[in-house]
Amino acid sequence: MKAFTVHQGVVAPMDRANIDTDMIIPKQFLKSIKRSGFGPNLFDELRYLDEGQPDADNSGRPLNPDFVLNQPRYAGASVLLARENFGCGSSREHAPWALEDFGFRAIIAPSYADIFYNNSFKNGLLPIVLDEETVDRLFKETEANEGYQLTVDLENQKVVTPSGEEIAFEVDDFRRHCLLNGLDDIGLTLQDADEIKAYEEKRRASSPWLFA
């Protein structure tokens, strides 16, 4: 996993609540057995005017000019600004894979669906929670200023605006540690293998029907 320390990038505003993971990456692209290559189909149904197909060339497809990521002013965006309950619905990790593959490194929203939130951390994608009022203000600033950028500092847990304003955010220590260092948590858990085995033996004794 890519480590995340400090990132500065162009902000793209997705002004819509309850963005679901079907919208982030539609089902037909879930047939892939790979982890990469989902970026061209991120938000496929919003981004293009026709229906996308897996393993197809997307370069000649008609783009929806109204969609935020197709607007030249947001080209190269790597910070996504969104509304409440972002990432609801299906547990597909293809959603953070697609966002990351497209080039996003951080998301800022008032709230996320639990599974999506969890999945993002496993993929070097930082979901930041800021209160609704602050998010609303960032939407206004982003829309008012072409090329608007934010700096996301995970080490110090703050978002820095172009005017130098610092906005603090909360993040779980363990997730922060893994993301800062790009750590694979399977390796960390396996350090506790003896404790897992001890628990398992106890469970086998108390609930033998759970073991074949």
Binding site: R35, S91, R92, E93, I115, N119, K122, N123, I186
Partner: peptide, 9 residues
């Protein structure tokens, strides 16, 4: 439900 990284975990 869990994501694929957690399936592997």
């Amino acid at each position: 439900g869990i994501g694929t990284s957690e399936v592997e975990h």
